[in-house]
Simulated scan of single mutants.
Amino acid sequence: MATVGLLTVRGRAGRVHEALEGYREVVGSFARTGNWTHQWATLRDLADLPHRPGDHEPAALLHAAADQAPDAPAGAGSRTRTDVPVPSREAVIDAARDAIARNPAGADRS
């Protein structure tokens, strides 16, 4: 979980590209190992990263899925939208990977 904390700090510091690259690896690792307790917390953090203007659906989906998962740790306040259907775990991982791939975080590349 220390890696996730570092990624969260990087994202908040504007180093979004670095954070996204790290999240890609961590989400994949937790998906392979089946560590869903930590995966849900990671997906919430990923959802809070800056995203494309007008592209709020991936964040809403990730928060809704984590908020409604029985094995997810409690989040910092419910953000669940009632109009966002909660997909399967596989679909949540696909949505996270897609959100990472679509994020134009190249502005912080040096």
Score class of each variant (00 low, 15 high):
98 D>F: 06
105 A>K: 08
58 P>W: 01
17 H>V: 07
37 T>L: 12
30 F>N: 11
92 V>F: 03
43 L>H: 03
60 A>D: 14
86 V>K: 00
105 A>L: 09
10 R>D: 14
58 P>D: 02
91 A>T: 14
77 G>K: 00
57 E>L: 08
6 L>C: 10
15 R>F: 02
101 A>G: 01
48 D>I: 00
76 A>F: 10
52 R>C: 01
76 A>E: 14
59 A>R: 09
94 D>C: 08
15 R>P: 00
3 T>V: 06
54 G>E: 03
96 A>T: 00
58 P>G: 04
9 V>S: 13
49 L>F: 00
10 R>S: 10
45 D>P: 07
40 W>F: 14
5 G>K: 15
75 G>S: 03
35 N>D: 15
55 D>L: 11
82 T>L: 08
60 A>K: 02
35 N>H: 10
6 L>N: 12
60 A>R: 05
92 V>P: 03
109 R>E: 14
72 A>Y: 08
88 S>I: 10
2 A>S: 14
54 G>F: 06
83 D>Q: 04
63 H>C: 11
8 T>I: 15
63 H>L: 13
108 D>M: 05
27 V>C: 13
59 A>C: 07
18 E>M: 00
49 L>R: 00
72 A>N: 00
71 D>Y: 13
23 Y>F: 15
10 R>E: 15
18 E>T: 03
1 M>H: 13
81 R>S: 01
17 H>K: 12
106 G>R: 05
87 P>M: 08
28 G>Q: 09
39 Q>E: 08
12 R>F: 01
53 P>Q: 09
96 A>W: 00
44 R>D: 01
10 R>V: 01
44 R>N: 04
110 S>T: 10
30 F>Y: 15
88 S>F: 09
16 V>M: 00
19 A>M: 06
55 D>V: 11
17 H>T: 10
3 T>I: 07
